[in-house]
Design a protein around this nucleic acid. Sequence first.
RNA 1: GGACAGGUGGGUGAGCUGGCUGAAACCACCUCCCUGCUAAGGAGGCGUGUCCAUUACGGGCACCGCGGGUUCGAAUCCCGCCCUGUCCGCCA
Length: 414
Amino acid sequence: MLDLKALEKNFDEIAARLRTKGVEEETLAKLKELFEEYKKQKRALEELQAKQNSLSKLFGQYKREGKDINELKRELEINKTDIAKLQEIVRDLEAKLKELALTIPNPPDPDVPVGKDESDNVELKRVLEPKSFDFEPKEHWELGEKLGWIDFERGVKLAKSRFSVLKKEAARLERALINFMLDHNRSYGFEEVCVPFMANSTTLLGTGQLPKFEEDLFKVCDEDLYLIPTAEVPLTNLYQDEIIKDLDSPIKLTAYTPCFRKEAGSGGRDVRGMIRQHQFDKVELVAITRPEESDKVFEEMVECASSLLTKLGLPHRHVMLCTGDLGFSAAKTIDLEVWLPGQGKYREISSISNTRDFQARRARIRFKDGKKNRLVHTLNGSSLAVGRTLIAIMENYQTKEGHIEIPKALEPYL
RNA sequence: GGACAGGUGGGUGAGCUGGCUGAAACCACCUCCCUGCUAAGGAGGCGUGUCCAUUACGGGCACCGCGGGUUCGAAUCCCGCCCUGUCCGCCA
């Protein structure tokens, strides 16, 4: 959630930054007004409550002393109804305030390039040259079906479209990649954890998937539970509602989980193949840091994910997302895009974001800084979407005969 | 899923015949004193959020699993939900 006090103080500046993310200034003005009205009414309410408390104390005292309490009682009763009325107003204002505030995205960092959509993203650098093929490289679905590695039909039969089944070497490769990534991340100081694949609504609210993006989530019926769309959700919320005592060095976590997404808004994009599935495996990185350290850790995370691709010999590029393409919770994001020779395109395979204190405020994650409690910064990044990595290996390591070579780095894992 | 017990501050744990309890005590932790040494003793501090004040001291409100209710007043009484423990059932 954005900092309402900051909005009150630096309205113009924050409004300007949020405008680049598509938020109308009117909305923010409304929010600010609501906040001020809420504070005003809340203060009035607290005054009445203070009165009630002190008179109630008197009431007890009078009774003990055997004094007449009728008049006092009448006054208390009147005050009580006043409190109830005001309470109703304050409760209503608070609900409206929350409802609105929780749907406002995180303002972009000032150094994020301003832009409308992905066409305005800025390429930062390329790593590894795409190799040239002396034949027409195929797309992964063609390879996958020919080799019997990917069974799209039966995935659909078992569940629905956008589900698939991995077979043969692909099934083993998927598992090998997960282990390879987790080991790699551990060498970067990320502690491996194993988390639930479902989360409740409070948890989803903490990282920003709720309340605005419920239509992207699979909900468990009759339960306050959702399938996680990313391990960022459980990992970041591990510290929900906590005050971390000793945050001298950042908390760095990594986990493998499947991810579940409805892909509600994706229309007919990437219907073919395994790029966009309702369920996919991902190894995730999450860091919880002091605010001063988040920029440094952000760079580390980008480096950690990028070097994974390099180890696998996969050509890729770093792309800084522009303001318009930034996710809801992110203040800054670098995407890693891997080269897919079959498609002849770079495609997103990792996304590393600094959310600053946006999620920390929602999830109430603080740390002790001397005597004070301050909000942490939270960061998350895919240390590669596993399915897309598999695709990238298939397309980049295919031979003329239609075989797939295995990257050297993976050999110990197979 | 059924039965019973219980959910209090970092921990253990009082309070639960309603007001003097935002909460005893102990432990942990922090500061200081003493101490020539990683001990013992002594003094004090030590929940969260928010608002007001701000030169400083400070003060108000809310929070004793969550949400309602009764009452002038609730950690304390009532209702619902969630969670934990134990026993039973079921099961990887």
